[in-house]
Deep mutational scan, measured.
Amino acid sequence: EPLWIRPDAPSRCTWQLGRPASESPHHHTAPAKSPKILPDILKKIGDTPMVRINKIGKKFGLKCELLAKCEFFNAGGSVKDRISLRMIEDAERDGTLKPGDTIIEPTSGNTGIGLALAAAVRGYRCIIVMPEKMSSEKVDVLRALGAEIVRTPTNARFDSPESHVGVAWRLKNEIPNSHILDQYRNASNPLAHYDTTADEILQQCDGKLDMLVASVGTGGTITGIARKLKEKCPGCRIIGVDPEGSILAEPEELNQTEQTTYEVEGIGYDFIPTVLDRTVVDKWFKSNDEEAFTFARMLIAQEGLLCGGSAGSTVAVAVKAAQELQEGQRCVVILPDSVRNYMTKFLSDRWMLQKGFLKEEDLTEKKPWWWHLRVQELGLSAPLTVLPTITCGHTIEILREKGFDQAPVVDEAGVILGMVTLGNMLSSLLAGKVQPSDQVGKVIYKQFKQIRLTDTLGRLSHILEMDHFALVVHEQIQYHSTGKSSQRQMVFGVVTAIDLLNFVAAQERDQK
């Protein structure tokens, strides 16, 4: 057995438009009618409502009807409940999964919650491996369901041993009777949507819809739904939504950006999952974080739909894509998950301010006199920076000697690579993860907040409520011999709460 199987392995699926269902090699399930009293909570997966979006479509000038398939009504709160249950049931049916076995899954959280929910009911041990950027709410729900959680670096490539995929496979090879159901490759993922989600949409719309818009992560949702719609409703256009920084969209030119990270969760990847059939997507749109969270908040405030950030991405694209539809036509959007997962993220004004998705003037509360002053007023001194090749031991000596707790790590040209902190280095040394002679590049981390000289002290204040420091950066445009230009970030300084307090105190003292 291989040590790991690539999540982007070539698909062996034989589905073709027009091929009889009787030739399918898979076990198919028909939607079942729910009894009045459910035998367990797993029976509350599927049969989610279709809700008309009344205000947002009109606000953006849509002539067509805009409908939302509300997947956050599933038992675990997301569309991923469907595939989690289906993968477990299919693994039980073919004898792969037996009582007492362990389920391991690399996930952005929602599939993990679905699997942990099913594992709690069915009696399996469950280990979820997820990147650090995923919300604390997801972690809390997983723990409450009895799952064990392993976190991995957000910026690790999918084929790196440190990625959530790599760590999951390492655990599988170490733990007896453990299984990775593997949402990236498992046919049960798109089949769950082909058999149930798509049929529900067709039934709820009486077979009449002209466009379907869905955000894409593993691709199982859009693949399964689109294949069924292509068979039953061939005139329906399928629109895929991919965040900026991901590479799922086609044509490839759409993916060209210097951005590699994004805040919206559960969609987009740096590889093409095996289950994603991009041939059934008629057109791709890219979405960005700001519009995703703005539209998610709009869905909550104006439509009462308590959905997550990827739902915002989907609707932001839908109001663009559906401009081509006329009166009497219908566009369906998939709202994948609930706001429950993001209470401390985009639902929080403070978080939105820190990330730059909300401006101070958007909030009406009274601010102190210094709130709208610029960061450049602080008069920061030149920063202490270190090269990635310097040793951890030497870096600790320098920081202690100069009285700093942290320093930016830059390359020879001064471009920011990340940050090192005294606390992080000492804990890594004590844990045996690094040696004093190791290069400081081994303990770089990139989960820090950046701020510009033109940003306000109010925004800085919000950042420092949650973080010990902020890195002050400025952009530099560099022209190359080819005539092309590129933008790079340079370090201007490091600012802490002490710097802000000293500035405010000094100004008030001078005024007296």
Rank of each mutant, 00 (worst) to 15 (best):
Q329I: 01
V410Y: 14
I267V: 13
K366C: 14
V333T: 12
T294H: 11
H480T: 10
E365M: 13
K320V: 05
G423F: 13
G403N: 03
V333K: 01
D282W: 06
V472F: 15
T482M: 13
V315P: 07
V440F: 06
A470G: 12
G414E: 13
E244R: 03
F271W: 02
T385G: 13
G379F: 11
D510P: 10
V472N: 05
Q259T: 11
W369E: 06
S381M: 13
G493W: 09
L453S: 05
T344C: 07
E397G: 13
Q354M: 12
E250C: 09
D282Y: 12
A292D: 07
T482H: 03
M352K: 07
G418M: 01
W369M: 11
G312R: 05
S437Q: 14
G245E: 05
I444N: 14
F295G: 08
V241I: 07
M425D: 08
V386P: 06
E258W: 13
L325P: 00
T260Y: 15
Q476G: 10
A382H: 13
L358M: 13
E258C: 15
D411H: 08
P243A: 03
I398L: 15
F293H: 05
H468T: 09
E377R: 04
G304Y: 00
T496F: 15
A506H: 09
H462G: 15
L347E: 00
S313K: 06
K512Q: 13
K367L: 15
G308A: 02
H468Q: 12
P436H: 15
E361Q: 13
R350H: 12
L399M: 12
I300C: 07
V473W: 11
K345G: 03
E253W: 08
L347Q: 01
A407V: 15
W371A: 09
V264P: 02
G493A: 12
T314E: 02
E253P: 04
H474L: 08
E291K: 14
D270E: 13
L353G: 09
T482I: 10
D337E: 05
N288E: 13
P336R: 07
F293Y: 05
K345H: 03
M425R: 09
E361G: 13
Q329S: 02
Q323L: 15
S428K: 04
T261A: 04
G393K: 12
V333D: 06
E508H: 10
F293A: 02
V473M: 15
